[in-house]
Write a protein that binds this DNA or RNA. Structure first.
Lengths: 337, 337
DNA sequence: TTGTAAGCGTTATCAC
DNA sequence: GTGATAACGCTTACAA
C-alpha cells in the first residue's frame, strides 16, 4: 500500500512536503502541490489513519456502547433509531462510529475504560445501561468524554440526553383523567431503569394533580417486555376488574397488556383504555392503534452526538439536552363509561 | 496515558520484555511476568491498539457499509437484524465494527476503497447496495476482503450471503395456487435490486409450474416502499377487479397493498389474498396478520460475518452462503371463491 | 518554500 | 530470559 514516502520519492521531495501538500497547508509551492496530488492519485494513495491518529492523539471515531443490540431489540426500534440519529450527525461531522461489543463473553472481561482506551475513541455514547451496571461508575470516574442516553450523569466530561419522563407520564394521566377514568393502573419497567423511576413519579404526580386515588398494588413491573407485561396485566385485571385504564411505561408492554385484555374478554378501548410510551413503529400499525407518549428517538441520538462533540471540543458548557415528548391520541383510549 | 515504556521503567526491564510478558509469550521468567502484570494493573495500562495495528498490519475491526441506516429503515427491521447478527459473531471473535457513513455529503466524495483503506479495516460487509452503485465494481476490483448481503459477487476476496429468492417466491405462488387462486399479480421492488429480479423469476416460474397465466401488466414496481406499493396496487386493483391475489416482494409493500385494498372496499383475505416477503416484525402484529416468506435476517448477518472471517483467514474456499427461507401462513391468504 | 530529524506506542529481529 | 534497535506511516518543531 502506498505511503507518503513513496510519493516523496516519486515527486523528488521530502515526506514533510508531501504531508503538508496533502493536508492543504499554505506554505507549499503550487506546482509541487499539484505534482504531489497528481502522483497521489496515480498510485492510489490513501492516508493511514492509524499512523496519523498515533501522532495526532485523536482518531475521529466515537465509540458506541449499546445494550439492546440483540435479537429482540428489533421489536421496539428505539435502539435502531437512536443509532441512526447518532450516525447521521457523526457522519456529517466526519466522525466514524465503532460499535463495542459488550454482550459477548470475549470482551466481557474488559472494563469500559479499557475498551475505549484501547481503540482510542475520542468519545463515547452509551445507551441502554442500567442503574446498577458497574460500567456506570467507571464512566463517571474515567476522563473519557461521554454522553448517555436516558441516564442522568453530569460531569466535566460527561453529559446526557433524555426526555422529560415525569411530564410525559403526566400527559398520559391527564389524558386518561379527561376521559373520565379514575381507576388507573400502571405497568412499569424495572427498578434498574432511570426512566422507570421518572415515569412512576409522573404517574403519581399526575394522579394527585387530578385528585385521583393511587393504589400502590396497581403499580407493577413488566420488565419492559411484552410477555412479562401480559402476565402482570392479566393478574392485575383479573383481580381488580374495576380498573378501567392502564398506563404502560413502554409500547411493547402496552402490546402485552392488549393481549391480556383480549384473553380476559375485555374490549379495547371500550372496557379498558391503554396508553403506552415511546411511539415505536408497531404502535401505529397495531389494531387498535396505540395511544402513546411519543419520543423522538432519532433526535435523541442526533442530539447526543451533537452534545458529545461539543464536550469534546469544549465549545459549550452544556451537559444536558432534553427532547420534547408528545401525546399521540390514537385508538386505545376512550371515555370511561 | 500509560505505555509499555512506563511499565518497563518501573519494572526495570526493557520494553521488549514487557511486550512479551503482556502478550503471553512463554520465554519470559514467571517472576518478571508477574511483576510486570502487577505494575500494568497498578498504573492502569491499556495497550494502544493503533500502535499495535500499525506494526501488525491488521486492526481486528471490520467495516460496515450500510445503505438503509436511515430514519425510515426502522420500519422494516431488516437492517437492524442483520447488524445484530454481524455484531454477535464479530463480538464473539473479538472483532469490533466500524460503521462507515456513506449517506452524508462529507464522506460521499471518498471512494469505497479509500474509506476502508484509511481505517485499515480487515474486511467489509456491505448491505443494501444497488446493482448500479459505482461502489460495486470498486468492491470487485479492490482487494479488500468483503462479503455482500443479497448481491451475488464472487471473487478471490469477496463473497455473499443470500437466500434462495427464486424458490422463496415459488413457495408463495404454490401456496396461492393451492388455495385456488389463478389471477395473481405481483408488486415487485425496483430494477436496481438483485432480489427483485430473482423474486420476479420465482414468480414467473411458479406461475408456469402451476399452469397459470402470467399477465405482464400485472407485475408492477412498488420501489420497496409502503406508499408507492399502495398507489401501484390501488390502480392495479381498480383496473383489474379480477385479481384475487397479490404477491409482494416485501412485507412493507404488502402493508401498502392492504391499505389500497381497504380503500377499495376489498376485504382481506376474503376478496384479496396477500403474501409478503421478509417477515418483518410488523408482519405478525398487523391485522390481519401477514402471510409471508420469512427470511432469517439475523442469521444472514451472522453468517456474513462468519464468511468474511473465513475469507480473511483463508480457512475456507467457500464464497457463498445461502440461508433457508420459509413460508409462514397467517391470515392474509385464504381459499379463492 | 523545503528538508532533517524526532517522536507517537507498539512488535519483531537478532544478538547476548 | 532478556535487551538494543529497527520498523510501521505519519505529523511537526526547527533549521536552512
Amino acid at each position: 500500500m502506498a505511503t507518503i514516502k513513496d510519493i516523496a520519492k516519486l515527486a523528488g521531495v521530502s515526506v514533510t512536503t508531501v504531508s503538508r501538500a496533502l493536508n492543504g497547508y499554505s506554505d507549499v509551492n503550487a506546482d509541487t502541490r499539484k505534482r504531489i496530488e497528481q502522483i497521489a492519485k496515480e498510485i492510489e494513495y490513501s492516508p493511514n489513519a492509524l499512523a496519523r491518529s498515533l501522532v495526532m492523539k485523536h482518531t475521529k471515531t466515537i465509540g458506541l456502547l449499546v445494550s439492546g443490540l440483540s435479537r429482540d431489540g428489533a421489536k421496539d426500534n428505539i435502539v435502531f433509531d437512536v443509532l441512526t440519529g447518532i450516525n447521521e450527525y457523526c457522519g456529517s461531522m466526519g466522525y466514524d462510529l465503532v460499535l463495542f461489543n459488550t454482550t459477548t463473553s470475549k470482551q466481557k472481561e474488559k472494563t469500559y475504560a479499557q475498551l475505549c482506551r484501547e481503540r482510542r475513541v475520542d468519545g463515547v455514547i452509551v445507551q441502554g445501561i442500567k442503574k446498577d451496571d458497574p460500567y456506570l461508575i467507571e464512566i463517571f470516574d474515567s476522563n473519557i468524554p461521554c454522553v448517555l442516553i436516558d441516564v442522568p450523569v453530569e460531569n466535566e466530561h460527561t453529559g446526557y440526553v433524555s426526555t422529560d419522563n415525569v411530564d410525559g407520564s403526566m400527559k398520559a394521566i391527564r389524558h386518561l383523567a379527561e376521559l373520565g377514568h379514575s381507576n388507573i393502573a400502571m405497568i412499569n419497567g424495572h427498578d434498574q431503569a432511570y426512566v422507570s423511576k421518572e415515569r412512576r413519579k409522573g404517574f403519581e404526580l399526575g394522579m394527585v394533580e387530578e385528585g385521583l386515588d393511587i393504589h400502590p398494588e396497581w403499580i407493577v413491573n413488566g420488565e419492559f417486555t411484552e410477555l412479562k407485561a401480559e402476565e402482570a396485566a392479566y393478574q392485575l385485571l383479573k383481580n381488580n376488574p374495576e380498573i378501567t385504564a392502564i398506563f404502560c411505561a413502554s409500547d411493547l408492554m402496552a402490546l402485552g397488556v392488549m393481549r391480556a385484555a383480549f384473553d380476559l374478554g375485555k374490549k379495547i378501548p371500550g372496557d379498558l383504555s391503554i396508553v403506552g410510551y415511546d411511539d415505536i413503529t408497531l404502535a401505529s400499525y397495531v389494531t387498535p392503534a396505540l395511544t402513546t407518549i411519543a419520543q423522538d428517538t432519532f433526535r435523541m441520538g442526533y442530539e447526543a452526538a451533537d452534545l458529545l462533540l461539543k464536550i469534546l471540543h469544549q465549545t459549550d458548557e452544556k451537559r444536558v439536552q432534553l427532547i420534547d415528548n408528545e401525546l399521540k391520541v390514537r385508538k386505545t383510549t376512550t371515555r370511561c363509561n
